[in-house]
Nucleic acid binder design. Structure first.
Lengths: 203, 203
DNA sequence: ACTACATCAAGAAATAGTATTGATCCAGAT
DNA sequence: ATCTGGATCAATACTATTTCTTGATGTAGT
């Protein structure tokens, strides 16, 4: 009993998150608390390294992760940031059990709740409610991704910067600008100049 | 052939180390070069986290690792530091395949050569010479450990500090004093006072 | 030749990590 | 009871690392 309570306390942010989507019964809460394991990643630590299979579906309790691809020239292209109450995973690698071409690492010390592939399947089997939860959750991610793509192919760097500031104002002051630049696909120097320009035109 | 040379070059510090213990023949060198994989851990990054099984036997090429236990109060007790040409592993977890109660992380960016459990067994099977090498190497570690224990149970903090300075003079200027304090089992403040005292009595 | 960026180098500014010091407290040995 | 060998807390100082900005110069596409 004591142990159950401890697990539930650790999983609380995730249980809250699910609860807001679909109410869970007692047993379902306990499964979640049992199958999602808390884990701390420290700043700069890899969560997933290119060439490894992505074995974990990660829910971020606190901190910030980034997913990126390193191109042939060694430049970093950031696909996604994720902070509190977001998910981070290479879904392709996770489901195909094939090595990932992507990297995930921590920009801050980050606590996640992670579930392994096998345990996630077990969870789906035990309660189809989780099929629905994860469908919705992935749909949300899909929508953000599509939005991001559209912006990328259709806008100039300045427009992308402005859109970023609108969509993720909380990230703007939280992340180093080097990271934001890598997300926008420009150099930190150029981002610095863009910001300068913005600041000047405002007054 | 080219590839062989590259691997041997990467494994050079380890081959030198073995060579000083027992001469290796060509095939043995190649096994070592093949089975030990180079890996970089960045400062603050975990090499082993409490609760995980220790799967790798690590030889440090450059950098510095620390092994420690976190107690119920959250205090850190450092069991061991390891720098160039030393080994770092939770031997208990490694051999029992049970989760470790210890943490290992990097105090500096650290390059290791690591061999997995299965590959180490394979190495022993291929050449019993490695049984001897690893026996000797673990005996060395055992002796340091026993010395450390003895010091710990029999000395005052000041004596332990002096002994540390004698035994590991190179670590004294390399590690932050917070780490040395955690190794000696005292607070950084008290260590600071001890050093002050030493400096004054010398003149 | 103008716009929208990149590259490189250097310095400034901000932040995080480390060390020191003083004040106060406490437990065990004398 | 008080002295010694420590701990804890808070403030300050110092150092190192990371991040940001700026200037100079270059380049590809319209």
């Amino acid at each position: 009993m004591d142990k159950e309570k401890l697990l539930q306390a650790q999983a609380a942010p995730l249980l809250d998150y699910f609860q807001k989507m679909i109410p869970l019964d007692k047993a379902e809460k306990q499964w979640v608390a049992d199958l999602f394991k808390p884990r701390l990643y420290r700043k700069r630590q890899y969560v997933l390294q290119e060439g490894d299979v992505c074995h974990q579906f990660n829910f971020i309790v606190r901190g910030c992760l980034r997913m990126y691809k390193v191109d042939e020239k060694g430049s970093i292209h950031i696909i996604q940031f994720a902070t509190e109450n977001w998910w981070m995973i290479d879904l392709g690698s996770f489901h195909s059990r094939q090595p990932s071409a992507l990297n995930i690492d921590a920009l801050e010390d980050t606590m996640v709740l992670q579930i392994s592939y096998d345990n996630l399947i077990a969870l789906y089997t035990q309660s189809p409610k989780f099929d629905r939860i994860f469908r919705v959750l992935i749909e949300n991610s899909f929508v953000s991704l599509q939005k991001r793509l559209l912006q990328n192919i259709s806008s100039t760097a300045e427009d992308r910067y402005l859109a970023f500031m609108e969509t993720y104002p909380h990230l703007a002051n939280r992340l180093p600008q080097t990271q934001i630049a890598a997300f926008l696909g420009i150099t930190p120097e150029f981002l610095s100049r863009l910001r300068n320009k913005q600041a000047n035109t405002k007054t």
